[in-house]
């Protein structure tokens, strides 16, 4: 295929993908600028006017923050940041151990670790509630953070990556007399930045979307997280659609903004670092 044509096809795909990603959200964003009773005005039946914020108002955003959504976002960021930071350390260490060392029963333990994330959270929510309340953590931030730190999927992700790193890297460092933790820190971690970002994203998004567990574990509702806060927009009789969409827009923007500065680790990559085999 000639390069020009190839580029054209590529751009066509890019535009198509972007439209599919953006268009549904475009409607949600515009709806967040409408008064609540006008959300469905141009929708049943659909007219192109539904894609324009007419009438326009910022009421939804004012109301969202009057409800204390600022604090709710801060709470969630705290929980997600703590989980991500602790989770990266804990799961990377375990992945490192599984990838580099042999010990009796290793494959069984690794198997159990991987399987541990295959059970639906709904199935373990109730027993977990009992465990956490026996620890006395109900209504404490620890109840949200600690159970989510160790993550079988993240261990598996690090294991998969560390396994790929050629052994002569660590052996060379060993010969120079470096300790294992030093090797992890100065050889493996720099190589694994994309993996760290993936694992961090996984841990972060898990908390960002957490809903059932925060409802159970924080019954006093003094400390709300995003999904719990958003659920309050729908009550028994009415739904504050414009606020719901406004909050959705805000909560979608934050992970995006956090990912953008990390992009350079991804994009420079193909020309730069990489594991030389």
């Amino acid at each position: 295929m000639p390069p020009v044509l190839r580029k054209a096809v590529l751009y066509l795909c890019l535009v198509a993908a972007a439209i599919i990603f953006v268009l549904p959200l475009w409607w949600a964003i515009l709806s967040s600028f409408r008064p609540n009773d006008a959300i469905f005005r141009d929708l049943f039946p659909f007219t192109p006017r539904a894609l324009w914020p007419e009438p326009f108002t910022l009421d939804a955003y004012v109301a969202i923050f009057e409800r204390g959504f600022g604090a709710i976002i801060a709470n969630t960021l705290l929980v997600a940041a703590l989980t991500t930071a602790l989770g990266l350390v804990v799961n990377a260490l375990a992945g490192f151990a599984f990838a580099l060392f042999d010990f009796p029963g290793k494959s069984t333990v690794l198997g159990i670790v991987v399987v541990s994330f295959m059970l639906p959270f709904e199935a373990i929510a109730m027993p977990l509630y009992t465990v956490v309340s026996q620890l006395g953590w109900i209504d404490h931030v620890a109840a949200l953070v600690v159970p989510s730190v160790a993550n079988g999927l993240a261990v598996f992700l690090f294991y998969q990556f560390f396994q790929q790193v050629p052994k002569d890297y660590s052996e060379a460092a060993r010969l120079e007399g470096a300790g294992w933790l030093r090797i992890l820190w100065s050889v493996y971690v720099p190589l694994s930045l994309p993996t760290c970002i993936s694992a961090g994203l996984m841990l972060f998004i898990f908390q960002w979307e957490a809903f059932l567990w925060p409802l159970l574990a924080m019954p006093a509702q003094q400390f709300k997280v995003i999904q719990v806060g958003m659920a309050a927009f729908q009550d028994q009789y009415t739904t504050a659609w414009n606020q719901l969409f406004g909050a959705a827009v805000i909560t979608a923007l934050i992970p995006m903004l956090l990912l953008i500065p990390l992009q350079r680790y991804y994009v420079q990559g193909l020309a730069g670092s990489g594991i030389k085999g």
Binding site: A125, Y129, S133, F211, L212, L216, P219, A231, Q234, D235
Partner: peptide, 23 residues
């Protein structure tokens, strides 16, 4: 008074009742 969002009330309260939550 502890409260739950309307949509999740039955599910979450059922879990707390079932676990014999004395709270």
């Amino acid at each position: 008074i502890q409260s739950l969002p309307w949509n999740q009330f039955f599910q979450v309260s059922e879990m707390r009742l079932k676990s014999g939550d004395a709270a």
